[in-house]
Simulated scan of single mutants.
Amino acid sequence: MFGKKAQKVTIYTSFVLFGLFLLVLCQTACLSSFGGSPSGTRLDKMKTSKMFHDGKFENDPFVPMLSSGDYIGVMKRQLFGSEVRIPPSPIPVQKPDLKTFSDPVTPGLRAIWFGHSSVLVEIDGIRIFTDPVFSGKVSPFESIGPGRLFPLPLELSELPNIDAVVISHDHYDHLDMTVAQFLAKKGTKYFVPLGIGAHLESWGVPENQIIELDWWEKGNIKNIEIICTPAVHYSGRGLFSGKSTLWSSWSLIGPKHKFFHSGDTGYSSHFTEIGKKLGPFDLTSIKVGAYDWTWEGIHMSPESAVQAHLDLKGKTMLPVHWATFNLAIHSWDEPILRTKQGADQNGVRLATPKPGEWLDLQKDPVSESWWEKVK
């Protein structure tokens, strides 16, 4: 009798210990995805930034994350709205021929939109990736959170050599731990706003591959000047890490071409300032989706995105940050419909390649309205 009881206790204890092990493992994984906390000389540099106040970064002038309004109505729309937020049929994805990636990189300016804000840019012989996110879910958890709406054009293992990555801010839909760990082993350099280096170092990215910049500070990769430029947004990967790292846009200035990446941002005079100082830009990659009137101060509308392109003195506009993750209340294709209308009204040269399709600035921009066939 005692032996059977002891056996049951042992089995029960084993299950409990195994459960605790899984719980600890899960928590460890989650904590890893949260990233690190700035300290030491990194924190000292952050404190010298004009954007750093009372232990965190703030927009100047201050912009609330949410505007006052009918939040109950917003929740009702979120839960019961009639918007078609998921594409009714598969989004067309074009897998690029790996032979098109030459080494050394082809001169000129061309790009591939991988979805959301992930754009692989080849500019004047250098290959740079903006906000590369390859995870299926954009959250601290692998199985919980907004899921990808279409497959990636290429897997991580298929990527060509990447000279550098620029990160606009540390939200999960812009900074991917798995990608950082993979590219770190390839020697890729990461250009990031202040504080984000703590995340990268906690994930094993070597210190000499991290270039951490304040607004208007410059770095370079070979002959390309990489400038950290302003944005109106916020940051944070954990419950208590809001605004602990800086956010930014990025300007890539080559000998013959210029490229701008907006990151996430509200509309403000910073676009005009960047345009005056660094423009005109041959290609602008500007976010057009995941907006709502309640957070328009930090996520501009499609019409504002078109105006931002004009402020930047842009020549060709590539709309990004849409149709990849269900992050807002609007229909999945509303951002591109409004962007195209605004572009047509303002004479803006709009490029609308399918995910994975090359956009070559030496040729006429891809302008197919492929989303109209997704029904």
Rank of each mutant, 00 (worst) to 15 (best):
L159E: 02
A164W: 08
K137T: 03
Y172K: 08
A180R: 04
N161T: 15
A180V: 06
I144K: 05
T130M: 02
V138N: 05
P151V: 10
G147P: 05
V133H: 05
G147A: 15
I167D: 06
I144A: 06
H169Y: 10
H174Q: 14
D163P: 02
H169K: 14
V138W: 03
D163A: 02
I162F: 05
F150R: 07
L175Y: 12
T130L: 06
R148M: 10
I144D: 01
P140A: 08
S168G: 10
V165H: 07
G147C: 14
I162C: 05
S157Q: 15
Q181W: 08
D163W: 12
L156Y: 06
T130K: 08
L156F: 00
P153Y: 09
H171C: 07
D176W: 01
L152V: 00
S168Q: 04
Y172W: 15
V133A: 03
S139E: 04
L175V: 01
A164I: 08
V166G: 01
K137V: 05
D176F: 03
E142D: 06
A164G: 02
L149E: 02
H169L: 13
P160H: 12
D173C: 15
I167H: 05
L152D: 03
L159P: 00
I167Y: 06
T130H: 10
Q181C: 05
E158L: 05
E158Y: 01
Q181S: 11
L154I: 07
Q181H: 08
Q181T: 06
G136R: 12
N161P: 12
V179D: 03
G145P: 05
I167V: 13
G147L: 15
K137A: 02
V165C: 07
T178W: 13
Q181M: 10
E155F: 04
V165Q: 10
P132E: 06
R127T: 01
F150N: 01
Y172L: 14
G136E: 08
I167R: 04
F150E: 03
D163F: 07
D170R: 11
E155W: 04
L152Q: 01
P132L: 08
N161R: 15
P132F: 07
P146R: 13
V133C: 05
M177Y: 15
F141C: 04
F134G: 01
V165S: 11
I144Y: 11
